[in-house]
Design a protein around this nucleic acid. Structure first.
Lengths: 338, 338
DNA sequence: GAGTCCGGCGTAAACGCTTGCACAGGAGCC
DNA sequence: GGCTCCTGTGCAAGCGTTTACGCCGGACTC
């Protein structure tokens, strides 16, 4: 049978209350007593029962991470950042993916997780998405990644600015027909997608360049999707001379499509990605770099803060972006040859 | 205040015992009563308190996934497979990464997770690794991925056979000096690494080919590492004409190193990877394909089974491998030209 | 030196379930 | 018609903590 707090109390010659206080580091315990209790607990290999402790204290002792995907590059990184921070806390990390909300109909996490977590960490999902919005009804703190919402802590990057930067780079290189490889048709449940779309559009409008439906294709954030999208764009009557892909993985696919058509990235068609994927360097892809793990870590820190200081005003944190220019972008060809 | 089982009992005109039984689908409840209780619970928006239920029942209601990494391709996929299965169960998924056990010294998960989970799912870690071996002291079921151990369920592939297949393919193409890009120096806490090393060696021995330390370099399972390893191998006095990389990501790095040296993969040096990474197709890499998500899913199913039927004899499941031959492997050059 | 304060500790009441046991009543059997 | 058996239900004892409250004694204050 497992040790209980009572066993420790008996052995140490104190009450269970004192054991509880001593072991949790609460004040008003004689250092001598505390040490004795600690030693007894250690000797008897005592571990608190989380269930009992949670029931008595009313705290769930866990936080849930709600993510659309686990296996994809970006989400895995963010998750890793979160996990590293939570590892150092005494909170359990409950993982719950909900898949693409527009495709699958998983049980919304809200009901399942009620009374089960002290807080939520939501990645990339718009807060008004069905199944996500219910999270806010449980009155526990929520930290959002890549989105913002009144009353919530949030961490992310400026997706609009990032997309603008990417497109502006292409404009600076003389491109005028600039294509977009987006995720899926709007409206989308993913916030970054919306914002990058806005950044793309704004950059073009600012430069008085055309924003045409013909210049856009959906790549569903996968390599294959990016490849198909690029192929689609190339088949259009008046194809773009440069393309902004909303993710590096889609850009990888785009690069492949170009090669399949005998075109050379950069020289024939410029491609910019978004993420800072390791492979971008290897494929010589120009890309917008975001600090992915740090985003997760910061969000976790924010949530811990919100749990510790429930009254503190939520803050919005925007992390800096960078752009790495590589061979996949170059001066527009006809310009270059002029 | 949140509803309790007592509120439901009162409202439905039954005892709390009946509510508990009705809601959990236990037998010996009149269907009419059950339905009434369900409706009341629904109407009052009742959700059981997991803490109370766990304390009373003695079940933890969660399983822990112990993984060295979260953000890496393979582990993310496996995790995703696990999560999809667990989503359908009523168990929480506790995520705990321990980093590379040989590098970091995180708190071993054992102590932290005692009394907290009903079972463990361990990915890739040798069961005799410090910090991992303690898991087996808690007498809860364990399902292992990529390893085996007496008394444990396990799911994986035949890494020895996979590595053999890869190397044999190179041998069949006429290569005689076949290099290896491994993870890190043996001994390693990762089981697949050991086994792939054995497969590599055995294939060479069977063909009476040399197994030289000079033919091996460590790539640490990263792209950059693979690149460095390939560079190292190329700088050796008598470099290999073909290379087996223990992971696709290291193979990607190797391909890049080749190009950096003006060598063409396949024509000049053949490269085989291991995993079935999506990018392998795009980089024209020959690779051994394993069903990664399925490995995770099957392991989760196995663990659920072990929890449902504690007496059932653990089983070892080995999933089939495939090989996809692409342009990165070709007949040995001097042979081809003869 | 009486009064006040405070640190250290114990008592016991929750916390919200699960489940062993008991029991009533009806069905089935001889 | 008495017996057993089975189904549906209730009673109440836990499960192992946390924490409000109260008590005691020593260190202050005036």
């Amino acid at each position: 049978m497992a040790m209980t707090i009572r066993d420790i109390a008996r052995e140490a010659g104190v009450s269970t209350a004192t054991v509880s206080r001593a072991l949790r580091g609460l004040p008003n315990v004689d250092p001598v007593t505390r040490e004795r209790v600690r030693q007894v607990a250690e000797r008897l290999d005592y571990v608190v029962s989380p269930a009992a402790s949670r029931l008595a204290s009313g705290r769930a002792g866990s936080i849930a991470v709600i993510t659309p995907y686990i296996a994809r590059w970006y989400f895995g990184r963010v998750l890793s950042g979160i996990e590293k921070v939570l590892q150092g806390s005494d909170l359990d990390l409950l993982l719950s993916s909900i898949g693409d909300p527009s495709e699958t109909h998983r049980v919304p996490p809200h009901r399942k997780l009620r009374r089960r977590v002290d807080g939520f960490l939501v990645i990339s999902l718009s807060t008004d998405t069905e199944g996500v919005n219910e999270i806010f009804e449980a009155d526990v703190p929520v930290a959002l990644i890549d989105t913002e919402r009144e009353g919530c802590w949030s961490v992310g990057i400026d997706d609009v600015a990032g997309a603008r930067m990417a497109v502006q780079h292409l404009i600076n290189l003389g491109h005028e027909r600039i294509g977009l490889i987006s995720g899926r048709p709007l409206p989308t449940p993913f916030r970054p997608e919306e914002n990058r779309w806005v950044g793309y559009r704004d950059a073009l409008l600012d430069a008085s360049l055309p924003v045409e439906a013909d210049l856009e294709a959906c790549g569903h954030f996968t390599i294959e999707g990016g490849e198909r999208a690029m192929t689609t764009l190339l088949a259009r009557p008046n194809p773009p001379t440069a393309v902004f892909a909303m993710s590096d993985e889609m850009a990888f696919g785009a690069l492949r499509a170009l090669r399949a058509h005998g075109l050379q990235p950069g020289r024939d068609v410029s491609v910019v990605g978004f993420d800072g994927h390791e492979m971008a360097e290897h494929l010589d892809l120009t890309t917008i770099v975001q600090p992915v793990e740090e985003i997760g870590a910061r969000a976790a820190v924010a949530l811990l803060e919100a749990l510790d200081h429930p009254t503190r005003e939520p803050q919005q944190l925007t992390l800096p972006l960078g752009m790495v220019v590589r061979g996949s972008t170059a001066l527009r060809r006809d310009r270059a040859t002029i």
